[in-house]
Simulated scan of single mutants.
Amino acid sequence: MKINTLLGFDFGTGNIGIAVGQVITRTASALKPLKARDGIPDWDHIAQLIDEWKPDAVVVGIPFNMDGTESEMSRRARKFGKRIHGRFNLPFYEADERLSSFEAKDWAGKLGHHGHYKSKPVDGMAAQIILESWLNDENNTVIIT
């Protein structure tokens, strides 16, 4: 299966960051984050995003601990990815997202963000970082075949 367009997700319990990416350019763009209730999104909104962007697959950031071990959040993020796969029949790929939120906050700060992350979240930027890192990982040959 040829993959051209992907949706990337930065799973969180209050917000879920989203980005859309293209294989040909290996770039992504942040979209407006989704609100979540204890990690549960509005599935209708995700259906609308899938209908709008028509992704060939999704990439979900998995927040491993710094030593590479699993955490409760990594298990929840993986479950979220599996639910997208089950509901929308889209291939689901995992991306190691250690430090993506830190990198997004650093990037946002350089762009003039003043640290009010509740009112101006950077979850979309984190999803963009996750997706672009995955797109540019030489080990992900599945996207080029």
Rank of each mutant, 00 (worst) to 15 (best):
D56R: 05
V23P: 08
M73N: 08
Q128P: 00
A77V: 06
S119C: 10
G115T: 03
F64D: 09
E52T: 15
N136L: 07
L111A: 15
T27M: 11
A28T: 07
A104Q: 01
A28G: 14
G21M: 12
G12M: 08
A77I: 03
D10G: 07
N15H: 08
S74M: 08
A19E: 14
M73T: 07
I46C: 03
Q128I: 00
I129Y: 09
K110D: 15
I24D: 14
E138G: 13
D38T: 02
R26K: 15
G109M: 05
I50W: 10
L111C: 12
I24R: 13
G21V: 02
G109I: 02
I129S: 03
I130G: 12
A126E: 12
W134D: 01
V60I: 03
E52M: 01
S101Y: 11
N140V: 05
F88V: 08
P121I: 05
I40L: 09
S29N: 11
T141N: 11
L49N: 06
T69Y: 06
V23T: 06
K105V: 04
K54W: 00
N139S: 15
K120M: 14
D51I: 07
G68M: 01
H45P: 00
L135S: 06
N136H: 05
L131V: 12
K2V: 13
L6E: 04
N89C: 05
R78S: 11
V58T: 03
E72S: 06
M73Q: 14
I3A: 05
E52F: 07
A127N: 07
F11N: 02
D42C: 05
S71I: 07
Q48C: 03
H113W: 04
R87A: 04
A95M: 01
F88K: 06
F88D: 09
L90Q: 08
R37E: 10
N4T: 08
N136W: 03
N15K: 10
E72R: 09
L111I: 06
K110F: 13
E70G: 09
K118P: 03
H116W: 04
A57L: 02
G39Q: 07
V142I: 08
M66D: 04
M73C: 12
A108E: 00
L34H: 07
V122L: 09
Y93V: 00
L90Y: 11
V23G: 02
F64H: 09
Q48A: 15
G21W: 08
D10A: 13
T141I: 12
L7P: 00
R87D: 12
D44M: 15
D123E: 15
E52D: 15
L31H: 00
A30W: 05
T69E: 12
D123A: 13
P55G: 04
R75N: 11
Q22V: 09
L131G: 15
L99M: 10
E52C: 10
E132P: 13
R76F: 02
H114E: 15
D38C: 00
A19Y: 01
F102Y: 14
H114I: 13
G86H: 02
D56E: 09
N139V: 10
S29T: 14
T141P: 06
T27W: 08
T5G: 06
K2F: 01
R98D: 01
